[in-house]
Design a protein around this nucleic acid. Structure first.
Lengths: 230, 230
DNA sequence: AAATTAATTTAGGTAAGACGAAATATTCAC
DNA sequence: GTGAATATTTCGTCTTACCTAAATTAATTT
């Protein structure tokens, strides 16, 4: 049961566990085995096993049947990985002209291979961005992150104005679709109508003459985060 | 003994085997087990095992006790990996200001994670370079490579002029040293003297007033490739 | 033909992670 | 509070993908 020494380099699966645990913990206070399993598309039994190993390495604390919480070190590693991912995504779009629906998969692989040196140089080269192309905040080199809670598009009242601040980044096809509609971070929106019973929401996107009206399903709309405007 | 299907993605060790087999084969016609083992710092027995697996996958042909040769497919994979490595090295120096002694290690990791798409975008962004920062030729997207045989610095006759075309890239400290001396690809040199019995060579590096004279060991000098000039 | 060198086979080990099934704990509904 | 449903863990195994030492066999040298 002895604690192993801390390596400064972790395997890709370990980094991925820590990433999703960080996200779940932030959203719900503690990460349950099943949630982790579902997000990683892995059997719950496998998660139990890995969780034990991560706990042995001092990356998280585990209360049986109560979920896990990252330790200081675990949080550090998670945020470093998230920073890598988001800096890489930003760099690919801004410096290499990648379309925003492709950067996620590429970053998903590179984040485990890129050195801190490289990530820092990338960040510097594009002016130390604070959010990635999907509006997600980028942790600093020191591991600070500006996590804000935004409301979903579906939370706007009919007639209310808003501005898109963030969209979820993990599905390329959905992203492409959102892009076609103009629903990217920064876009001005007006919620026109919400159909009841799980119906679509009607939104006007864009400013002035170039406004476009569209109808999108509630699931998709819930993944578009906005802030209220004027 | 059935041939497995060909995956389009290979593990890092496999790509590394193919890379060094390509290099050895180019230099000596066929790659012997011991040579591969030595270059990869691995026991010969392990090489025998891996060679069998690679042969089963159709990446190389193996005549027992006679060494291996890459198949068309093996060569394709090797050259793709080499292209990745060298494009990444070039990109890191030219676009991100990496010092030339650090790019090798970074590229060594990234080459196994970067997609063709990314590598092609990097190449395009810096104007489709044909050689990497150490003067090594970069294979094209189609797998063609312009392999030229150059002479070593030690092969110049005293008094002869030359131009550095390539240096070996795998040792950061040596590269830093060569850099300090100005011995980078493109540098003009004059061989002043070769001391006998494994002694140092004396070289004048640079042009006109800025010439510097230096003495370097024969091992190092043998890794500096040049072409004769004027 | 013996000695040397090179390569291969054998048998086994490791690391890292995954899984299904069974057992156990917790929570929920009433 | 009890039983059902759900969540979690443990157990015993498996896989992949590599690596190794020691012993054996083949090729080469002289």
């Amino acid at each position: 049961m002895m604690e192993s020494r801390v390596p400064e380099t972790y395997t890709a699966p370990v980094e991925n566990y820590l990433k999703v645990i960080y996200e779940i913990e932030r959203a719900s206070g503690a990460a349950a085995t099943t949630d982790i399993a579902q997000r990683l598309d892995i059997a719950p039994a496998s998660v139990s096993g890995m969780v034990r190993r991560l706990a042995d390495q001092g990356l998280l604390e585990h209360e049986r049947y109560r979920g896990v919480k990252l330790t200081e070190e675990g949080r550090r590693v998670a945020l470093r990985t998230i920073r890598r991912h988001r800096v890489i995504e930003s760099y690919l779009t801004r410096a290499l002209g990648y379309p925003w629906d492709l950067v996620h998969d590429e970053a998903e692989r590179l984040e485990h291979a890129a050195s801190d040196e490289l990530v820092d140089r990338m960040a510097a080269a594009i002016g130390e961005p604070t959010v990635d192309p999907h509006g997600a905040p980028i942790p600093t080199r020191e591991g600070e992150i500006d996590e804000q809670s935004y409301i979903a598009l579906t939370d706007l009242e009919p007639g209310e104005h808003g501005r898109v601040v963030r969209v979820s980044d993990d599905d390329a096809a959905r992203l492409r679709y959102l892009g076609e509609l103009g629903l990217r971070p920064g876009a001005a929106v007006v919620l026109v109508d919400r159909a009841p019973y799980g119906g679509p929401v009607t939104v006007r996107v864009g400013v002035a003459k170039k406004r476009v009206e569209c109808h999108i399903g509630p699931t998709l709309a819930a993944d578009v985060l906005v802030e209220r405007a004027e």
